[in-house]
Nucleic acid binder design. Structure first.
Lengths: 258, 258
DNA sequence: AGATTTTCTTGATCCAGATCAAAACTTTGC
DNA sequence: GCAAAGTTTTGATCTGGATCAAGAAAATCT
């Protein structure tokens, strides 16, 4: 189930000069050794994955699609803490206790699920697995650091720009028009909860970005970043995010712009 | 989802009486196997640890004292992303690229430093080491999730309360007075940068908390939480933080209050 | 000790973004 | 196809915290 055939519409005809260096998607490879022990879950939009599998810690590995980790502390509003995409690893112990944590699929996708013990066995047998797991948690932590800076320091325009750059880097593919197209399987409230904004404000900013020609909507669940460089210029996190996602599908084409 | 036993008001609103059950600090034990390969660094206030040791990834393990991870994205203000205390593990790959990341000692402390390869050897030889490392990164990620919620959803009073509860749980010891005393090796700007607030606002809130009898200052670098239960009641994250820090020094005495 | 610098507090003002409210779309159900 | 129930947009208003500015306290220096 190695999602090598993920990006079917890999049309890379980037005309936007800087963004044209598209290359074939070189996914961060999930070692094949993982998966022999795993159950594959197919998710649909909004599906919550049960974190506590009786009999030990559970591991989730995202093969395709997008998951969100959301927590709701008592008496507070929901926070979407992280977006997990292809290659990301989640362990049930990563969820804070007493926090109503949930792992929710943003759209259709495939998730491998296994017990910690099984993964540990695979990791002991194969150094590539161990290295992969290390990389995955380092990348999660680095992104989490950037997200903290986004929430703590950025104004609302910068936050929204960061969100679109992040999604474009993680799941986007270069389009014929020269922009980057990607699924946007979130409603306004979800995005607002990820960015610590309120949905009204978010809507206003998105309208502003549309008016400025930075982004566009093909249909409800799909967005296009029309001018990657201009959008990247609006967030201090662009370069850092691009560097982290090196190796992810859209990397090559976007990296040049960011 | 996870938190079946969410029962919010299970808090028996103890007066400081309930908080006096001090016990000897039972640190999360860093396995002895680690350390044979490590260099011990003694830090002083403000000292920045160099993240890139030539010849491979570097690991830092905090033995005592407090470190902060700070990042500065280009054109943005500094964000203090995390506080690391006794038992925490930091790898240089956890720092995001292009982010001017720095690991800075908040005060005097001891840090073990080693190469990834050395730690990997120890971990392969001893399952306790592996388990310890897993625990450490799970705990970091869980705390990072709570911090995201703090920055994204909490108002400024809640943030400040969260900060004090966090420090009290991590480095505090019960005092004869019934409160919890701990080092506060940060200036207002540092705390503000951790909480995404501005120092003036922070100062105002701290004055308010002092006036309400929640906290006090013995001297500049030392603080006392006088009424743990009342302070905990001001942040939605109290229970979650307490649960995460189970096993840390102040745990037993504070957990009852939170 | 006194002088100088830095950090902290506190009051006065301001504004980015939240909140409120209502209209314009979308989706879903029958 | 129409009705009912979401979502999203957009305008009008309000407010929590940021910013500015001036003192008060600590820390550092000579």
């Amino acid at each position: 189930m190695t999602s090598s055939a993920k990006t079917t519409s890999e049309a890379r005809l980037g005309t936007s000069a800087l963004c044209s260096a598209a290359k074939a998607p070189a996914l961060v490879q999930v070692p094949a050794a993982i998966g022999s022990q795993a159950t594959v879950l197919r998710t649909r939009r909004g599906q919550a994955l049960s974190l506590s599998l009786e009999g030990g810690e559970t591991i989730f590995i995202v093969r395709s699609g997008l998951l969100t980790l959301q927590i709701t502390l008592p008496g507070s509003a929901r926070q979407i803490v992280a977006m997990l995409s292809s290659g990301d690893v989640f362990r049930s112990s990563f969820a804070p206790p007493h926090a109503e944590a949930a792992l929710v699929a943003a759209g259709a996708g495939e998730i491998s699920r296994m017990r910690l013990a099984a993964l540990e066995t695979a990791a002991s047998a194969d150094p590539a697995v161990r290295h992969y797991l290390d990389q995955a948690s380092a990348s999660r932590l680095a992104r989490q650091a950037i997200h903290a800076a986004t929430l703590g320091q950025f104004d609302c325009e910068q936050r929204v720009a960061t969100f679109f750059i992040e999604l474009a880097l993680r799941t986007g593919v270069s389009a014929a028009s020269g922009g980057v197209v990607f699924e946007l399987p979130f409603n306004r409230k979800d995005i607002a909860d990820y960015l610590g904004l309120n949905p009204d404000t978010l809507s206003r900013i998105m309208s502003r970005f549309k008016a400025a020609g930075l982004i566009a909507h093909s249909d409800r669940n799909r967005a296009v970043v029309r001018d990657v460089a201009a959008l990247a210029a609006r967030t201090p996190a662009a370069r850092a995010l691009a560097a982290i996602s090196a190796g992810k599908p859209a990397e090559a084409s976007l990296h040049a712009c960011v």
